[in-house]
Design a protein around this nucleic acid. Structure first.
Length: 152
DNA sequence: GCCAACGTTGGC
DNA sequence: GCCAACGTTGGC
């Protein structure tokens, strides 16, 4: 099983939105590295740390899981979507992919970015690396277990 | 293939 | 709102 961290702006799509939807398509990913993680490494049952970004309390809210592996993101072909991608439309095929995720468990407490930063055993997380903006990041099993045991 | 310009991310 | 860091675009 693989472990991931996925960022979402809560104003756009929050943990609560995921809980009410039960299953959500992770659409709108427009970065090749992130897409390639989904295409090449995301497998059914992989665990996901759901991270709220660009908000008052940035941090990990809970754990989700992958319930459908990568498939074409149709918003790339939808000219009415904010994720519309002219190059995909021109090619008649979406060059972007998405996965479906479902909630597993909300953390007792938000794993706040500042707290993660203060946790010695989490210093090597990609999340803490300067300039790291990738919206989908691999997480090691150790990192995942540590986070779950502290805040989960 | 280079690289300047531009756009985006995301914490603060 | 600021701005550092990074990715993408497009002219050459």
């Amino acid at each position: 099983m693989n472990y991931w961290l996925m960022k979402s702006e809560p104003d756009v799509f929050s943990w609560d939105d995921l809980e009410s939807k039960k299953i959500a398509s992770w659409d709108g990913v427009r970065n090749y590295q992130a897409r390639n993680f989904m295409r090449d490494q995301f497998r059914m049952g992989d665990r996901v740390l759901f991270y709220h970004s660009s908000c008052e309390e940035p941090g990990i809210v809970g754990i989700a899981k992958v319930v459908r592996e990568a498939y074409p993101d149709p918003t790339a072909l939808d000219s009415a979507s904010e994720y519309f991608d002219p190059a995909s439309a021109k090619a008649g095929q979406s060059r972007w992919l998405m996965v479906d995720v479902a909630p597993v468990k909300k953390f007792r407490q938000l794993a706040h970015l500042s707290e993660i930063r203060e946790t010695r055993s989490l210093q090597s997380m990609l999340l803490l690396r300067k300039g790291q903006r990738l919206s989908i990041q691999p997480v090691t099993q150790d990192e995942f277990k540590t986070i779950e045991s502290i805040w989960g």
